[in-house]
Design a protein around this nucleic acid. Structure first.
Lengths: 360, 360
DNA sequence: GTGAAAGCGCTAACAA
DNA sequence: TTGTTAGCGCTTTCAC
């Protein structure tokens, strides 16, 4: 095969040397200019930028990473990208990261530890500077590779006894208490809870908060009124079915997430039960779609933007903190009730109250 | 600051030299072993792997990329990650890419050319080997940076006169014809079309296919029955409103995507129109959620998996083809009608037919 | 303020 | 079959 005869023929991507040659400076000066080092005279700065523009040059991240040790890459692992909660979260996280000069690597673990393990591995090979583990899951054991390699991490609702690991605590309690109180004020006493899969921390925490809120409200908890679903729409349909099969049915259902609640809405409609007249339903997440369900879903908002911000901030502090700088190791994201159309006073009790003016 | 006294103290990430030393071979042998070169004896292969395991070593992608010129990174640009169609697409694309040893960089352009430009820039800096532009948009002019840098591309529904650019053609026609015929067979004659935003190629193509299908079916097209929406749920609600304000209303609505159709379903419900008895609705995409709308949505399926496969295949061929190898520059992804519950014979005409046995 | 030179961790020629 | 060595494109001392 013929080799290229003239160097002119090779119109390859310009590198830092090309720029230096054109600007008639050393490559060190080009590097300094690009990185905004103050120690470059205005005269040369101008010449360098002019050459850069002319050549349409951009630096090679891999070379930069190799020598500087900083990849400016952040990993984000979500539980399930197909659950609308997560794309919204990824979107926020990416925006913030990009605004700060970072790039992100996204992976969806789908609750599968093996998948998680391979994506952690890939992230390690790419030398990520930190990983946001927003899978809310029980996959933490697989995270030891991150620990071993000393990679900063931020975990949702999970403490890892490691100096590089930060935690985002989600205060579901506020929102769930508000939801229960809202229902109680409306006159409900029989509140069921459609839980998430117990392998998720988030599901456990939410369920516990429901129990606490019920206790505080002085309401009895029936074991049968708590049913484990899987945070999917289908799961909500199934959960609803189980509840309706009970001899004494709840008048309101609190769901561990919005998808479950949407499943309930759907199942109730098909069975001819009117929401909210015959049954009140509350979700959790406040995904964009919640506003558009029929009726619009009353739900507990968990801000994706807040969560993304906390996750990024935790990682950034770990990645950029100087020696001796104190970093924040714990972050809190709160929740709040958004009242829309899926809650109302219970039908029967309302009549009963109307008849006597006294609650049971 | 005190320097490290003993090399023992530095428990830093092992590199290829560390492995070589432990296995008592040269770094070249380690490299060959990792890359599966056949030219390594079983004896050494074993020793090397053993050392790798012992040290928990993994190669540094940046160094690899730098020297080999191959990043094994692919970019994927979607229109809007919050539209459920896209997470499903990303999921598929990632699975395939990872299975072939590639990593992906995801960006959501949100129809914003400036955002697109910066994500292209970031992808260039990371030396992606190809970019799947699945934004279906009019942002192609911004893609010149990819062209200039000779980066392989695959575009949906857009031909770029560039040797590195492949195209995925979406055969909406099959699905849309099937949808129109389905409606016609049911007895509909007044079919409206809720189009997507005209800045999207996909929207234009779909609308044209609707016109063609209508013409083939011998049905008149009313200008007022084609209204431009924006592929969002809200847009569907608005579009529905415009259609209902017409003196002569359509009995069926074909929508440019599922989100629009879901908006129509919602608006119709609120206005007390029953779907499908009073109005038939058909979507396009077949997002996971379509199965769970009320009633379940009849829609035109566009397989995300097929699209992802085509996109990956196009990029892989460009990235890996040897000189002289013929590569496929055009790919076709088809569509098909999925009949569910949102279509039925039109109410009025059904009665009329019942009365006389003859159609108008 | 500027430049020369030493690598970052790896692959790929070339030798042996 | 194995090892030696020259960089990939950049940042970062260290001199000047």
């Amino acid at each position: 095969m013929a080799r290229r005869v003239s160097s002119k023929a090779a119109a390859k991507t310009p590198d830092i040397r090309t720029v230096a040659a054109l600007a008639k400076v050393s490559i060190a000066t080009v590097s300094r200019t690009i990185n905004g080092s103050p120690a470059v005279s205005d005269r040369l700065t101008k010449r360098v930028w002019q050459a850069i523009k002319q050549l349409n040059y951009f630096p090679n991240t891999h070379a930069r990473t190799l020598v500087s040790g900083r990849s400016r890459l952040l990993g984000i692992i979500v539980e399930n990208i197909v659950n609308p909660f997560f794309p919204e979260l990824i979107q926020s996280f990416e925006e913030i990261a990009v605004a700060h000069g970072y790039e992100i690597l996204v992976s969806s673990s789908n609750g599968n530890p093996a998948v998680l393990a391979t994506c952690v591995r890939r992230m390690l090979e790419r030398k990520v500077e930190g990983v946001a583990v927003l899978s809310f899951g029980a996959e933490e054991p697989v995270l030891d590779q991150l620990v071993i390699n000393d990679i900063p991490m931020v975990l949702a609702e999970f403490h890892l006894d490691n100096p590089k690991a930060s935690t985002i605590l989600l205060d579901y309690s506020t929102g769930i208490h508000a939801a229960v109180n809202h229902l109680v004020k409306l006159g409900h006493r029989r509140l069921a809870f459609l839980a998430g899969p117990h392998k998720l921390h988030s599901a456990i925490t939410r369920e516990n908060d429901y129990r606490t809120a019920m206790a505080k409200a002085g309401l009895p908890i029936q074991k049968k009124w708590i049913v484990e679903c899987d945070h999917t729409l289908k799961g909500g349909v199934v959960g609803y079915g189980k509840l309706q099969a009970l001899p004494i049915r709840p008048t309101a259902i609190l769901c561990s997430n919005d998808m479950t609640a949407i499943g309930v809405l759907r199942a109730a409609y098909i069975e001819g039960l009117r929401v909210p007249q015959d049954l009140s339903v509350i979700g959790l997440d406040d995904i964009d779609f919640a506003e558009f369900t029929l009726p619009p879903l009353t739900t507990i908002r968990l801000s994706r933007a807040d969560l993304a911000r906390a996750a990024f901030e935790a990682l950034r502090q770990q990645a950029e903190h100087g020696i001796g700088t104190k970093i924040q190791r714990e972050f809190l994201v709160s929740t709040s009730l958004v009242v829309r159309g899926s809650t109302a006073p219970p039908a029967a009790e309302q009549e009963w109250v109307g008849a006597t003016g006294v609650k049971p």
